[in-house]
């Protein structure tokens, strides 16, 4: 299990399970600060796997740099064949649906699970 933590957030991935959990509020100041998280996300794509799951249900806030980071990840996933990408989001958190629309535009095959 790998974990990246900050003052108000935690990003965690489970070995062999291609699931990335986000928690808290992510307000890092730019793409440089988001690079480790993007690397962690991209790490789930390194194996020839079918399904990758990004769980955002506990992520209350993600600033625009963070959304850029998610967009880069989605583009990366889209450009590889055979990736079945799922985002698990919460209807109760407003930014989720708004941001996911752009992500779905980037990758029409992206599956959104409301929870």
């Amino acid at each position: 299990m790998k974990t990246i933590t900050g003052e108000s957030f935690e990003v965690r991935t489970e070995e062999g399970r291609n699931v990335v959990f986000f928690k808290g509020a992510l307000r890092l100041s730019g793409s440089e600060d988001y690079a480790p998280i993007l690397e962690m996300l991209k790490g789930t794509l390194s194996e020839p796997v079918a399904t990758v799951l990004v769980d955002l249900r506990d992520l209350d806030f993600l600033n625009s740099s963070g959304i850029t980071m998610l967009s880069r990840f989605v583009i990366e996933a889209r450009d590889r064949t055979g990736i079945d990408l799922h985002f698990v989001v919460s209807e109760a958190i407003p930014w989720h649906l708004r941001s996911l629309k752009n992500l779905q535009r980037l990758m029409p095959a992206l599956k959104i699970r409301l929870n």
Binding site: G30, S31, N63, S64, S65, T68
Partner: peptide, 10 residues
């Protein structure tokens, strides 16, 4: 408009 990030580049 709003550019993501902070600093000189933004």
């Amino acid at each position: 408009g709003d550019v993501t990030g902070h600093g000189l580049e933004s």
